[in-house]
Simulated assay, not measured.
Amino acid sequence: MPNNPTTCGFEKLRSLLSGGLLILATLALLISLGTMLFESLSRVFASKSFFWAEELVRFAIIAMAFLSLAVAGVQGRHIRAEFFVSLFSRRLQLAAWAIAGVAGAVFSGVLAWSGWGQTTHLMRTMMRSESSLELPMWIIAGFIPVGAALLTIFYVSRLVGLIRRRKDPFLPPEAGEPLL
């Protein structure tokens, strides 16, 4: 089906989205590392600490983690207990993958829903961060429902893949082998 224009368009969109999320997550990591380096150098050479640095690092790490959840799944880099599953029969492997997919989709869906509620509450109350940065807290909290929603989409798409193709849906597309 590689010649199907819908499939090719979807793959391009998925690749673009994954690449964009990976760039944003990398930028958040670099902001975190740069801020930590700046803070440590200012403590060593100027005996000065900045109250906002710890907060910025914390927020950057939250953004990095939630932006990279779905990308890790698409690239087949989520932690898996494949040693035990590989000992199962093919039918039990299918069941284990289905259970893992449903559990992951439910967990990330609940996280997205509750994160959305928290984000909208922070928007209504216009809460700001406690440091001199005074960042709007809804922006930071917004990374949680966005990342969790993308992770939910990942799990649901893998469950659909499991049903349609009957192969391990949590491996990268080029690595999965047909089960039956």
Rank of each mutant, 00 (worst) to 15 (best):
M1G: 08
P2F: 09
P5S: 07
P5W: 14
T7W: 15
T7G: 02
E11D: 14
K12C: 13
L13P: 02
L13F: 15
R14N: 15
S15I: 00
S15T: 15
L17R: 02
L17F: 10
S18M: 13
G19R: 10
L21M: 13
L21I: 07
L21H: 09
I23D: 07
S32P: 04
G34R: 13
G34T: 02
M36C: 05
L37E: 04
E39F: 09
E39M: 07
S40A: 13
S42N: 14
F45C: 10
A46R: 10
S47F: 14
K48S: 08
S49G: 11
F51L: 06
R58V: 11
F59I: 06
F59P: 02
F59E: 07
A60Q: 03
I61E: 08
I62K: 06
I62L: 13
A63T: 10
A63Y: 08
M64W: 11
A65M: 14
A65R: 00
F66W: 15
F66L: 12
L69G: 00
A70N: 06
A70L: 07
A70Y: 12
A72H: 04
G73F: 03
V74W: 09
G76L: 04
R77D: 04
R80M: 09
A81T: 07
A81R: 10
A81Y: 11
F83K: 01
F84N: 06
L87Y: 03
F88C: 11
S89E: 12
R91W: 01
A95I: 08
W97D: 13
W97P: 00
A98C: 12
I99D: 01
I99S: 05
A100N: 05
A100S: 13
A103G: 02
G104Q: 03
G104A: 05
A105V: 02
S108V: 01
L111S: 07
L111R: 00
S114H: 07
W116G: 14
W116L: 14
T119A: 10
H121M: 09
L122A: 10
M126A: 15
M126N: 14
S129L: 07
S131N: 12
S132Q: 13
S132A: 14
L133C: 06
E134I: 02
E134N: 10
L135M: 10
M137S: 12
M137Y: 03
W138V: 06
A141H: 07
I144E: 00
I144P: 01
I144S: 05
P145E: 02
P145M: 01
P145L: 02
G147C: 06
A148E: 03
F154L: 14
Y155S: 06
V156F: 11
L159V: 09
V160F: 06
G161L: 03
G161F: 00
I163R: 02
I163M: 09
R164L: 12
R166M: 03
K167S: 14
K167T: 04
D168N: 15
P172G: 07
P173E: 15
P173S: 09
E174H: 12
E174T: 02
G176D: 08
E177P: 00
L180M: 01
